[in-house]
Amino acid sequence: MQTQTCPPSIKPDDKVVLFDGECKLCHAWATFLIRFDTQRVFKLASVQSDAGQAILQWYGLPTDVYETMLLVEGAQMYQKSLAFIRVMLALPWPWKIAASIWLIPKPLRDWLYDRIARNRYTLFGRYTTCLLPTPDHLSRYLNGG
């Protein structure tokens, strides 16, 4: 992983959550962040967007199969349960409490994360296309959507 420069479209102080825009669970996660990230700490990008694809390529990650949420903080990238923990820590109370999953050993946390991620379409459903942000949410997305 490169650490001296930031991925495309990302500034050093940006915090960007990449999510699967066709996954209903992931879309609900993005909607949750829009609602409860009252300080607007995070920007969002679907992995299917041009910006999302460029970020995945920059980190050498697959651009056609998405099995994890990513958090990009400047040049640093976090995946799976660690990404979730870092996001929850940045949200206001009571959401910070969810970060207490760090008490679970990382291998077990990530194993559970992987089970949900691999079965998310079966468990929660899938949109046939990537949903576009509503006009009032555009400012929350990297590059305005």
Rank of each mutant, 00 (worst) to 15 (best):
D13Y: 05
D13C: 04
D14R: 14
K15L: 08
K15G: 00
L18E: 00
F19Y: 00
D20S: 02
G21Q: 04
G21C: 06
K24S: 10
L25W: 02
L25D: 07
L25P: 06
C26R: 05
H27L: 03
W29E: 07
W29C: 06
A30V: 10
T31Q: 08
F32H: 07
F32S: 06
F32V: 06
I34K: 12
I34L: 05
I34R: 10
R35F: 06
R35L: 14
F36V: 15
D37M: 03
D37F: 00
T38M: 05
T38I: 13
R40Y: 00
R40V: 05
V41H: 05
F42L: 04
L44W: 00
S46N: 03
Q48S: 07
Q48I: 05
D50R: 15
G52D: 00
G52H: 07
Q53I: 14
Q53A: 14
Q53F: 09
Q53T: 15
I55L: 08
I55K: 10
L56V: 06
Q57W: 00
Q57C: 04
Q57R: 15
W58N: 10
W58T: 09
Y59R: 15
G60V: 12
G60W: 08
L61K: 15
L61V: 07
T63H: 11
D64M: 14
V65H: 14
V65Y: 12
Y66F: 15
Y66W: 12
E67P: 02
T68R: 11
L70K: 01
G74Y: 07
A75M: 10
A75H: 08
A75Y: 08
M77L: 14
M77K: 11
Y78M: 04
K80Q: 11
A83F: 01
A83D: 08
A83N: 06
A83C: 13
F84C: 10
F84S: 07
I85E: 08
I85N: 02
R86F: 04
V87G: 11
M88R: 07
L91A: 09
L91V: 15
L91S: 10
P92T: 11
P92D: 08
K96H: 09
K96V: 13
I97Q: 03
I97N: 02
I97R: 10
I97M: 12
A98D: 05
A99L: 10
S100P: 00
S100C: 14
I101G: 12
I101T: 14
L103F: 03
I104W: 03
P107R: 01
R109G: 05
R109F: 01
R109L: 06
D110P: 10
W111Y: 11
W111R: 04
L112N: 05
D114L: 06
R115C: 07
R115Y: 03
I116E: 05
A117D: 09
R118Q: 06
T122W: 05
T122V: 11
F124Y: 13
F124H: 12
G125K: 12
R126H: 10
T129A: 05
L131I: 14
P135M: 07
P135S: 11
D136G: 01
H137S: 14
L138A: 10
S139H: 15
